[in-house]
């Protein structure tokens, strides 16, 4: 379990996250939602040790994440940021194989290759695995990054807007693979997501942020309703039950 205890982050004089506490429940998909600038990415980066926090603690299995050896932590928890600029010309396959670095330090074993090929298969990248990443479309590249995270095979997977650049088919594919990873392999996923209906259909829990604070959190079925949406987004959004899913009609 990951516990966030009273964390704060200030940039200059701007409090971006203020005294925030949340428990990430294991074996579930938790979605962070909220409007632009609410602090979702900042929170996710602090959760995954990418940025330092001014106050508070993040505990993984009761241990402060900064006291865990970086290489050990990399086998427990992985993070993919919202935007990634890589100027290197490397092949998709090589990019994904770097996901195994925490295990093999670059000397890939047979086992590593099994994991790499599995990740390639999961993200349907077989046909483009030999391509250089600077020659991919935005969506193909995003899938390659996610495949690297899958190859990293950590119990905790944190993805900041994983559906960036993806078409409908691949968005569904990624959300389905996340569910599969959670249900079949017992992994825990934390994602930042803007598409409220994806959040509604695929996550177990929703954490709603506004101005660096949690305004509401809870199981998805209790969270997705017009009242919550009003509070988080200041919009009147009707919610309808379609095929057993709560669908938010936010286009008009």
């Amino acid at each position: 379990m990951v516990e966030v205890k009273h964390v704060s982050k200030t940039y200059g004089s701007k409090k971006v996250i203020e005294n925030l506490s949340v428990d990430i429940q294991p074996g579930k998909i938790t979605s962070f939602i909220g409007s632009n600038g609410a602090g979702k990415s900042t929170l996710l980066s602090m959760l995954s040790r990418l940025i330092s926090k001014d106050e508070g603690q993040v505990l993984l299995h009761g241990r402060d994440i900064h006291s865990i050896k970086p290489n050990d932590l990399a086998k427990e928890l992985s993070i993919l940021k919202q935007s990634n600029h890589i100027d290197l010309r490397i092949q998709v396959r090589d990019l994904i194989s770097f996901g195994r670095f925490p295990y093999s330090q670059g000397r890939l074993t047979k086992e590593d290759w099994v994991e790499i090929n599995k990740a390639i298969h999961y993200m349907e990248l077989e046909e483009i695995q030999e391509r250089y990443i600077d020659e991919l479309s935005g969506g193909q590249l995003q899938r390659a990054y996610i495949a690297m995270i899958i190859a990293q095979d950590t119990d905790y997977v944190m993805l900041d807007e994983p559906l960036n650049n993806l078409d409908m088919k691949h968005s569904v594919q990624i959300m389905k693979s996340l569910r599969k990873m959670v249900e079949e392999m017992g992994k825990t996923a934390v994602i930042v997501i803007h598409d409220i209906n994806f959040a509604s259909c695929y996550s177990d829990r929703i954490v709603a942020l506004k101005h660096g604070e949690i305004v509401r959190e809870g199981p998805t079925e209790e969270m997705i309703n017009s009242e919550m949406l009003k509070e988080v987004y200041d919009m009147d959004i009707p919610v309808q039950l379609i095929n057993g899913e709560r669908i938010c009609l936010h286009f008009k």
Partner: peptide, 21 residues
């Protein structure tokens, strides 16, 4: 160190995610 240099070349966050200092 070649692989580590390449991973560092992918950026600080990528490197941290993979457990590199």
């Amino acid at each position: 160190y070649a692989n580590r240099f390449t991973i560092a070349g992918m950026g600080k966050d990528f490197a941290s995610n993979l457990g590199l200092q």
